[in-house]
C-alpha cells in the first residue's frame, strides 16, 4: 500500500504542487480575488477544480514567530467512508492506496460528500452532467509506478511517496530525532482507521485546518451497513440529500456562476 508523507516543516510554500495537480489532471483555473484565505492562500477552498490547496498560517512556534504551511487534499483513507457510503461502488479503494471514483457508476447522490470525515469531496457544479470530484492520488500514475504529480513537483521533499509502513516509520523517526521541532503525532496514522496521506507538523494540526476530534476507528463500520440497502431507495434519498448538499454548497455555485459569466464576457 502506497502513501504520501507531507512534512510541512520542509515546505517552502512555492505551490508547485498546487499547479502540478491542475496540470496533470487537466483542471481549469478558478477565478479568484486578492486572497481567499490567510496569507497567500488561493482559492478559498477545495473544489471540483482544485483538488489540493496550500494554506499559509502565521503562528507563534515556541519562542519565535513563524509562517507555517498546510496542504489540503483527499486523505485516501485505508477504509474510506466515502466508498462505504456509495450505493453504486463508484468510490473504490485500490490496493495500491488511492481512493478513486468511477464516473460511469456515479449516480450523483453525493452521499460520499457527507460521509467524508475530512470534507474534501466536491461536486462539479460546472458540468451539465455533474459528478463528485477529488484528489485521486494520481492513481493513473501510481498504477504505472510513478509518483503523484504533486509529489514529483515538490523541490524540498516536503512531499514524499512510498510504501505506507516505511513512511510511517520515517515519520516517527523524524519526530524522535527532532522532538522539539515536531508535534508528537503522525496525523493520518490512526485517524479513522488510518489514511494513506500522513502529515507531520510543527504546530498543532487544528491550526493547519485539520480536525483533531476524529476517532481512530474506521467510519466504514457505521456507514457500510446503513448503505447496503441503498440502491433500492436511491432515487428518493439522492434527491433529498442532494438538496442538502446544494444548500451547503450554494455559495460555491454562486461563485461558479459569476465565473461562467465572466468567462462568457471575455469571449
Amino acid at each position: 500500500m502506497k502513501a504520501m508523507l507531507i512534512d510541512t516543516t520542509r515546505c517552502v510554500g512555492c505551490r508547485g504542487c498546487q499547479v502540478a495537480c491542475k496540470q496533470w489532471n487537466g483542471l481549469p483555473a478558478e477565478e479568484t480575488q486578492f486572497f481567499g484565505g490567510a496569507g497567500y492562500q488561493n482559492p478559498r477552498d477545495l473544489s471540483s477544480k482544485t483538488w489540493t490547496l496550500l494554506t499559509y498560517n502565521e503562528a507563534q512556534v515556541g519562542d519565535h514567530y513563524d509562517w507555517v504551511y498546510g496542504k489540503l487534499q483527499c486523505m485516501h483513507c485505508q477504509e474510506p467512508a466515502c466508498a462505504a457510503s456509495c450505493p453504486t461502488s463508484a468510490m473504490e479503494k485500490l490496493a495500491e492506496g488511492p481512493v478513486v471514483y468511477h464516473t460511469s457508476r456515479c449516480l450523483g447522490c453525493r452521499y460520499c460528500m457527507l460521509a467524508c470525515p475530512f470534507q474534501v469531496i466536491r461536486f462539479d457544479w460546472f458540468s451539465a452532467n455533474p459528478y463528485v470530484s477529488k484528489c485521486t492520488m494520481c492513481a493513473d500514475r501510481v498504477l504505472s509506478g510513478q509518483e503523484p504529480s504533486c509529489v514529483k513537483s515538490c523541490p524540498t521533499d516536503a512531499l514524499v511517496f512510498g510504501d505506507r509502513e516505511i513512511l510511517v516509520a520515517e515519520a516517527h523517526r523524524r519526530i524522535e530525532e527532532n522532538p522539539r521541532k515536531y508535534v508528537h503525532h503522525v496525523f493520518g496514522e490512526r485517524e479513522v482507521g488510518g489514511t494513506c496521506v500522513l502529515h507531520l507538523s510543527t504546530v498543532p494540526f487544528e491550526l493547519l485546518g485539520y480536525r483533531s476530534d476524529l476517532p481512530e476507528k474506521s467510519l466504514r463500520r457505521w456507514t457500510e451497513p446503513a448503505m447496503k440497502p441503498i440502491p433500492y431507495i436511491v432515487a428518493g434519498l439522492s434527491l433529498a440529500l442532494g438538496a442538502v448538499a446544494w444548500i451547503v454548497s450554494r455559495r460555491d455555485k454562486r461563485m461558479v456562476e459569476k465565473w461562467v459569466k465572466q468567462v462568457k464576457e471575455m469571449q
Binding site: 483555473a29 477565478e31 479568484t32 497567500y40
Partner: peptide
Amino acid sequence: VSEHWQAGAMTRNVPWLCELMPDVF
C-alpha cells in the same frame, strides 16, 4: 512572488498562476 515572473507577461496571462495571485497587494 513565486507565482509571478518579472513584468508579468508570461504569468499574468497564465490562468493557473492568476488563480494563485490574482491581484496586486
